[in-house]
Amino acid sequence: MAKDRPRSFQEVWRRLQDYWAGQGCAVLQPYDMEVGAGTFHPATTLRALGSKPWAAAYVQPSRRPTDGRYGDNPNRLQHYYQFQVLIKPSPPDFQDLYLGSLEAIGIDMALHDIRFVEDDWESPTLGAWGLGWEVWCDGMEVSQFTYFQQVGGHDCHPVSGELTYGLERLAMYVLGIDHVMEMPYNDPDAPIPLSYGDVFRQTEEEFSRFNFDVAETEILFRHFEDAERECEAILAHPAEDPRSGRRIVMAHPAYDQCIKASHIFNLLDARGVISPTERQAYIGRVRALAKKCADAFVATEAGGWSSPDAA
């Protein structure tokens, strides 16, 4: 087991990818849409549904407009990375596999205090919940560890085990860095060494300004409605595709619209134009979309549906 310390941000997530690839996970790439967390990737949300086994790991850029701090805060960012693992059914030694991943990035279990502290996960926008822990390393939360019980209103059977690592925070800890912008992004001895700040300080500034003060709320409200309508319209189509004559339930295209609505809601929230009561209503609307997408997904082959003829 590699106990030598990584030297850069990218080495941390590359080691995680290699480790989980070694455990048999398909290493996927980030989903090509704006999401608030790695969980929104269809490889987690949708694949946690149905009976088919699944194992995937990937880095997912995530956006939380309200967390923007113009690049000044040592560990708060409106754009950051999560590393996500989803295995269905959850393996019996999932905790040990997880601890192996910490060793892989250079955390010595004999010297550090690892704790599993109760933290039940719930996503009101996804209609999802699970039980698990936040994992502490020397008092710092380094991962979220969850056994999914329900997604999109559907009971998960079998249960998926999900891991989410906050990459910046974890890497800062492993590398001994105090301010995220000072973290080496590539190897410090590379011909052109780049820090996290070299890559992201400017975008943090630009997006903080945009998110808090510029994003046009009229347009956003309209986009929200459009995404909501489009999602429902896609799902309203009959399963039978008139062009190909095949049965094609469009769960993923509909889910893209659900992701869009969710992100637009986050932006509106950051703009401070949603009152507490309206907030609940918006969350409920996104959840309704997520549920419909989940219903659609379990009616697809990947979601465990099989043609009555095949039986």
């Binding site: 040592p74 560990n75 004999a110 010297l111 550090h112 205090d113 690892i114 704790r115 390393c137 020397d138 008092g139 710092m140 800890y173 105090d178």
Partner: peptide
């Protein structure tokens, strides 16, 4: 006072250092 779950060979130095760092972020 933090309560660790292990007796570390370095007498808890690394654990304390980590905890101090997290605390500093919280107290900031």
């Amino acid at each position: 006072v933090t309560v660790a779950n292990i007796a570390a060979p370095d007498g808890g130095e690394a654990i304390l250092a980590g905890n101090r760092k997290v605390l500093a972020a919280r107290l900031s």
